[in-house]
Design a protein around this nucleic acid. Structure first.
Lengths: 193, 193, 193, 193
DNA sequence: GATGAATGAGATTTCATTCAT
DNA sequence: GATGAATGAAATCTCATTCAT
């Protein structure tokens, strides 16, 4: 098997295992069992359990961002915003892997925390950038956009997280509608104009 | 030392250690070193590491709720809402301990997860109740109040959590103001009346 | 309470606890809970867990021997032998305490083993003495009486022990009758034919 | 080293250590020191200390039964019975391991007790079966064969056990001869006279 | 004499990582 | 590149015993 394929295969297995059990309860044994390879093979492709987790984390981030479509000012804005919200929610809710990871990542070790820090720093940057762009379009209200960016992430994360815990995850549509309602009243202005 | 005092002392030490390191990186050795007692003493007061964590969790929940003051309809409402937001933020932001725990608790074991589930179920109930009460007062807009309750918790948790990660925690006032602004535009209506 | 009474009380509690759980699964905590005294009090009366176990062991031995009635040559012998067998069986079968102890005592520690060794040495001496006396009366056959003494003890111990394990303890009468039959007639017949 | 070999080696080491110290005084540390492997290696082959003990127990049972030769009715019976007694005694007396274990096994934990119960249940069944067969051959006297089976086991176990304790273990031949004498003629004589 | 909080050595078990084949 | 047996540091938990009050 090509090295790249092997790596992908391990990454997929790891993603699935981490999604099922979370970082701490997942073991390297779980991952290699899932992938059907020997222990040593795992360490040929990843330096450590933490390293593969970090790689999984990056994959998730890519997946989430890949669904976002830049706003086109030539088109009706509300529909585009609704669409992006719905797609982000869908990506985050995706049972495949992207779930507990968002809350599981802290407390691994110094470098692990750094990875998480990095993950959130980049995410915040991107959201903040989108908000500022929105302000220039006159679609986003005033405020500390860095703080607002973090609030927005919580707004999405928490209902998904708690829904999972309680076994009553919201459907992407429900959540997206609710979020839009919340946001359009207070954060988003002038959409009609 | 009186048993009750010793228990409190151990609880405090545990809270501090968990706050610093999170559940998994904290060891019982850390806790007893912090408390200055022998290993066995710890197990005279708590059945296990998980048990003390659960006790810490409950203490935090009590702390958070104890700061909330019920809305008095005879008084100006906006000020009271602002005050409650500020106090909750302050409690959650409290450097003493109440912080990472909110994101650290998942993935310990089945019973640990149950404790977290319970924690959030009760919290959601209380927030939802407050929202419904607010609707009756004409202060809270329409929507799925269970979902909204969870959104609200995320709105508070996430900026605090990411602020901690990034080493730039928002001041309670900053965050409370921002939250109020977000909420008063979209969620809270008719405050002027 | 008089020191002697306290000691007796602790001894009784210990005997009961050891009987229920065996030496290793019984804890000092169990004994003092049963006796309703404080930990320190226990150590005022016994040097250690092993010491109290040793004392219990001696009590059991006394109980067992106290039921044996010396053979009176002026009376019919068979009846007396039957009676002694029955009484010993009864004492050993006694649910009060004398049970598992016989098999539980080994492997505690060097001194504990010495106590058990002593226990059995004395028991063997007494049985052997009785056998030799029996030979003088012409009632006991030839053989290595030390070895025979041990065989006899096994003959009584094992059915009781295994009966307990299997939850189908023989009644004293059943066992005594069977033993008498075995001893008086032998098990193997007609081999010469 | 091949897994099977390693497992055997660990089993041997465990058997020796348990034989020397008994279950409770033996530690996993003792076993791995004896085997010359690392702690983790032990747990690659056995789930727990109790699991390895159970495996040792089963090995002993196999060893003991493997020496018994079925009686051939075409041959002189006495010699065959003598031989079987001698071989069983030899197996039980075997300094390698098969010794204390028989009395050490009770009181470990619920599952351990179950294992011992099972061990004795099977042993009793086999002895009982042999006795009944002997009755059909006209070689074994009347009686409750289940009870007798247990008595027989005690007859062998106890002299070996006490001999070990006292440091004067009987030779297999001595014991076998004495047992044969007891079984073939009985101990008590001339009572009727 | 009685109390019971405190002790700490020692036991079992886990699992990420290594490295000879 | 793949394998998987071996490693051992580190963690949790137990419980007989002590000793100040």
């Amino acid at each position: 098997m090509e090295p790249e394929d092997r790596r992908s295969q391990l990454l997929d297995s790891a993603r699935q295992v981490f999604a099922e059990k979370g970082y701490h309860r997942a073991s390297v044994a779980d991952i290699i069992r899932e992938a059907g390879v020997a222990r040593g093979t795992f360490y040929n492709y990843f330096e450590s359990k933490r390293a593969v987790f970090q790689a999984v984390l990056e994959g998730i981030m890519d997946d989430i961002w890949s669904v976002v479509v830049p706003i086109d000012v030539g088109q009706p804005i509300e529909a585009q915003v609704r669409l992006n919200i719905a797609r982000i929610v869908e990506a985050v809710v995706d049972p495949a892997a992207s779930r507990l990871l968002l809350t599981e990542a802290v407390g691994i070790d110094a470098e692990g925390d750094a990875a998480v820090r990095d993950f959130y720093a980049r995410a915040t940057d991107r959201v903040q950038l989108a908000l500022v762009r929105g302000q220039r379009m006159g679609v986003v209200a005033d405020g500390d956009m860095r703080l607002v960016a973090r609030c927005l992430m919580g707004l999405v994360k928490e209902p998904v997280f708690q829904g999972r815990l309680a076994g009553e995850a919201p459907t992407p549509k429900e959540l997206a509608d609710e979020l839009f309602r919340l946001l359009s009243g207070g954060l988003l202005v002038g959409l009609k104009g």
